[in-house]
Design a protein around this nucleic acid. Structure first.
Lengths: 238, 238
DNA sequence: TTTGGCATTATTGTTGACACTGATGTCGGC
DNA sequence: GCCGACATCAGTGTCAACAATAATGCCAAA
């Protein structure tokens, strides 16, 4: 049991590691676009601005490197990772497979409270759609999928999904920013809720997979010049 | 195109970063058991032994942390990650889903040369089984699955699989060390090759998934005291 | 002999400095 | 005006040292 001083748990936790704070800060900055793909992370400037040294900054960047959010180039430093179309397609491909699998798990594991939680988020997303608040929708949408993965109670599955999701953030935002896409996405969420209530494993897996692939296709339509190169594995089978 | 000096690519790459070398060294040491789960990584000792400073060591450890191979405890350092039964089950669960998905991809993508490569490895594994060389089998077995994932040409899928595989290493070794398990595993590989040649997507997915789950079950049988807690999602459906 | 507190030690957390590499800008030649 | 060599500079790669924290061992009291 820790000493009385440990009542100041939150402070102690944040104070414990500058590297962790920088990690979270950079992660957030990258995800919400404060740093764009290709941007260099200037260790020295970052450290100086915060009155800290470069050691913790480099540790944070090494973690981001392993997480796939930044790329490291020898003697040049860390750069925000650039995803090309190939990457996006690959990630969506795996993402769809993970959702399909999650669907099978949820068919037996999800409970009323969890469905209610998703339903409530869906209501708020519909409201966001009606109000034309794309940003609000984006946040709720991310959480909607995140919660679905969490409900599988498979921490590794959820974690892998979160990592993929982070990598996709910029492109996903680009796709969802279009009003029609947001609307279509929300409609699919209604279907997801419907089949989750029904409980048929294969059907849930199918609907979740299709939602993921639909998201990919919405994204592809925002970049029609590139579609030609694409070769799918899902679309005409199963 | 890089300058002529870049011919010395390998040297330049290794010389460029001590952190990278330490990362690979620790990764290998952990995977082949030189460091056991729960062991602490002593930054100072590690650095002193190699005549380097602790900076690069910490950077390497941060990457290992993000990769899930080590755990970080504030003011206590880095410890080789301990996987409990729950972790193992979760990982095998995702792993099976990934193999199932890989199977669907391979149904259309794998070619004769790649199947031949797998077949050749299978022959060598059979020889290892016959000779009772469990270690040799373990190495080939790892590579067999790794190549299957690589053949999907989905770098993200392959990378996620590799990460899961690394996390499992110790337990997997424990399961495969039993002669009967090795034999059963090899038999399943023959079936995998057979369906890969045939090309039916659903069947390939099924066989690969089952092989992964069989591996999980072989592992579980090495720890019968724990099976009671287990609740599967695959076994009685699909 | 056991237990609790204290001093000691080992190790982590962070820093500032220095060497080295790659980028930037300047200047003379054409 | 354009181009390449060179000097300059910003920034990374690594280190050694110091401060802070947790582990260890000792000793005295019960």
């Amino acid at each position: 049991m820790p000493n009385p001083e440990m009542l100041y748990d939150a402070e102690a936790a944040t104070a414990s590691s500058i590297a962790d704070k920088i990690y979270r800060e950079l992660e957030n900055t990258i995800i919400d676009g404060g740093l764009e793909p290709g941007d260099r992370i200037n260790e020295k400037a970052l450290a100086d601005q915060r009155g800290i040294s470069r050691g913790p900054v480099r540790e944070a960047c090494r973690r981001l490197e392993e997480a796939g959010l930044v790329e490291f180039k020898a003697n040049r430093g860390f750069f925000v990772r650039v995803l090309d179309l190939q990457d996006v397609l690959e990630i969506y491909d795996v993402r769809a497979a993970l959702f399909s699998h999650a669907g099978r798990i949820l068919a037996r594991r999800i409970n009323r409270e969890q469905i209610a939680e998703l339903a409530e988020m869906h209501v708020r997303m519909e409201a966001a759609v009606a109000a034309g608040e794309a940003d609000q929708f984006y946040v709720l949408n991310r959480r909607f999928h995140s919660r679905i993965m969490a409900f599988t109670r498979n921490k590794h599955l959820a974690s892998i999904y979160e990592n993929l999701d982070r990598e996709l953030h910029i492109w996903r935002k680009r796709a969802l920013i279009l009003d029609g896409n947001v609307r279509a996405s929300s409609t699919e969420h209604a279907l997801i809720l419907e089949v989750l209530r029904n409980g048929n494993p294969s059907r849930i897996a199918e609907v979740l997979r299709d939602h993921s692939l639909a998201g990919r296709n919405r994204l592809l339509r925002t970049m029609p010049e590139q579609i030609a190169h694409f070769e799918g594995v899902w679309d005409d089978e199963d």
